[in-house]
């Protein structure tokens, strides 16, 4: 068995379609519809949880922001998988790698900005001391 033959038999790529992805003109809509319905159900569940959580005492008060962030990230994942059809299939490897790079940049921009600005704020002199110093300088 040659190398190409072995690879072809090991990866049955014809069947590696994303859930709800465009098939080869097949008119079987049920799997696609099921995917969108599961996605909608999960998204509604996570959204309702996000909106009701701050008004309840289910979670220790200071932990609510963390819970909200976790719920938001989970919902983004649901949207990516069920609505944007991001999968681990071979035809999606490039998309997943691009997403990983995007997430890296987004994290650097947001957490980098917050870190630097809070550091600057902490090291900033109070307003009174600033104006006093500039007067002294004149």
């Amino acid at each position: 068995m040659s190398e190409t033959e072995r690879r072809a038999s090991a990866e049955p790529l014809e069947t590696d379609l994303a859930p709800g992805d465009e098939g080869d003109g097949s008119t079987d809509l049920l799997p696609g519809l099921r995917g969108y319905l599961i996605g909608l159900g999960l998204a509604v569940l996570l959204t309702v949880a996000s909106f009701t959580l701050p008004g309840t005492s289910l979670i220790w008060g200071p932990g609510i922001p963390v819970a909200l962030i976790v719920l938001a990230i989970a919902q983004m994942g649901v949207h990516l998988v069920f609505f944007l059809h991001l999968t681990t299939a071979p035809d999606n490897t490039n998309n997943v790698l691009a997403l990983a790079f995007g997430v890296l940049i987004v994290a650097l921009v947001i957490f980098g900005s917050l870190w630097i600005m809070s550091n600057l704020n902490a090291n900033m002199m109070p307003d009174a001391a600033m104006s006093g110093m500039s007067m002294h300088g004149m």
């Binding site: 690879r7 072809a8 990866e11 790529l13 014809e14 590696d16 080869d24 299939a89 071979p90 035809d91 999606n92 490897t93 490039n94």
Partner: peptide, 10 residues
């Protein structure tokens, strides 16, 4: 067409 995931394979 069916065996080309976009990574050079197929």
């Amino acid at each position: 067409h069916k065996r080309a995931p976009g990574r050079g394979v197929g």
